[in-house]
């Protein structure tokens, strides 16, 4: 039983990392109309940039700080270079561009950074833990949970209290009407990419030290993130974190008690079951289209 509780706690922590990748997908889907398949690889590429800075000898935390700024700039360039041109060609055009971007970023990472991958990434969070009775809990898990709740809270506050948040909400609910009110949708899309670029780096930095840094390290996270988004209800920014926790806990339990090979499969069972039984997820609303 105590093992199960430890597994659940680390599942929650992993689930929130999944949640933040899913959040990137849902946030871009809501604000730009297209979920970006390249979100995971943007995180990967940005994490490589931090790694290169660190290898250059400037210390890991300064590298992380500079990486945050560069991550935002990088995401802005992705938007301006790949998605902004001819953005009136429809959402399926743009969606395919994000798939191409996913492949391109992978290839670029292999060429520029990947000659001897995978790499050991420096540990950012403490290794130690503590015990509550028979249950072992890792500080790293608690800190991860804290960081992601803080990010989620910051976004919630932005939506709740700022004018930009109000405009983002309006665009996500009905972009043509928002434009009629003078909301500059493209600027908001650019801003959304900058924010997602920074959040994605957080995900990459939480993943890289646990696994190894390689150009395919975010692939499972992207798939889990999709499952989390579907379970949470594709359009719900809070729901995606709950979906992430569900996916994280279930996959953690499955890999502990059944076998690691089945972890990914269990996520897809969750995804399929959600789509079959409750297509709008836990928190999404059944889609209503009108203008």
């Amino acid at each position: 039983m105590s093992l199960a509780i430890s597994v659940i706690v680390s599942g929650i922590s992993f689930g929130l990392v999944i949640g933040i990748v899913g959040f990137g997908l849902v946030f871009l889907y809501k604000t730009t109309g297209v979920a970006n398949f390249a979100v995971g690889n943007m995180a990967m590429f940005e994490t490589f940039i931090v790694y290169e800075l660190w290898k250059g000898g400037i210390g890991i935390w300064p590298s992380v700080a500079i990486g945050m700024v560069l991550g935002g700039v990088f995401a802005l360039l992705v938007y301006l270079g790949a998605l902004r041109p001819f953005d009136g060609r429809g959402n399926s055009n743009l969606l395919v561009r994000t798939v191409a971007l996913y492949l391109l970023l992978r290839a670029m990472a292999d060429v520029f950074f990947g000659s001897n991958q995978p790499y050991n990434f420096p540990q950012l969070l403490p290794h130690s833990g503590f015990s509550v009775g028979p249950v072992d809990i890792a500080w790293a898990d608690l800190i991860t949970i804290g960081i992601i709740l803080a990010i989620g809270g910051a976004f919630a506050a932005m939506f709740r209290f700022t004018d930009i948040g109000l405009q983002l909400t309006a665009v996500s609910q009905n972009a043509p009407i928002a434009r009629l009110l003078g909301v500059r949708v493209r600027r908001l899309s650019a801003l959304a990419y900058v924010l997602v670029g920074m959040v994605a780096l957080v995900a990459g930095l939480l993943v890289a030290p646990k696994q190894l840094l390689s150009s395919n390290m975010m692939d499972p996270l992207l798939l889990y993130g999709f499952a989390a988004a579907v379970v949470g209800g594709l359009t719900s920014l809070g729901g995606v974190f709950v979906g992430g926790i569900v996916v994280g806990v279930v996959t953690n339990l499955v890999s502990t008690y059944v076998g690691g090979d089945l972890a990914l499969a269990s996520a897809f069972v969750l995804l399929l079951a959600t789509l079959a039984v409750r297509p709008h997820g836990l928190f999404g609303s059944p889609s209503i289209q009108r203008l």
Binding site: D163, L166, Q167, T169, I177, R179, L180, G182, V183
Partner: peptide, 29 residues
């Protein structure tokens, strides 16, 4: 958006109200 900012306001068919936002937030937009 540029037409709106130039001073032409369009109240669309079906009203285009953001139902999940409050009346005050709609007007703030």
């Amino acid at each position: 958006e540029r037409v709106a900012l130039a001073g032409v306001s369009h109240v669309p068919e079906g009203r285009g109200i953001f139902g999940d936002l409050t009346v005050g937030e709609n007007i703030r937009l």
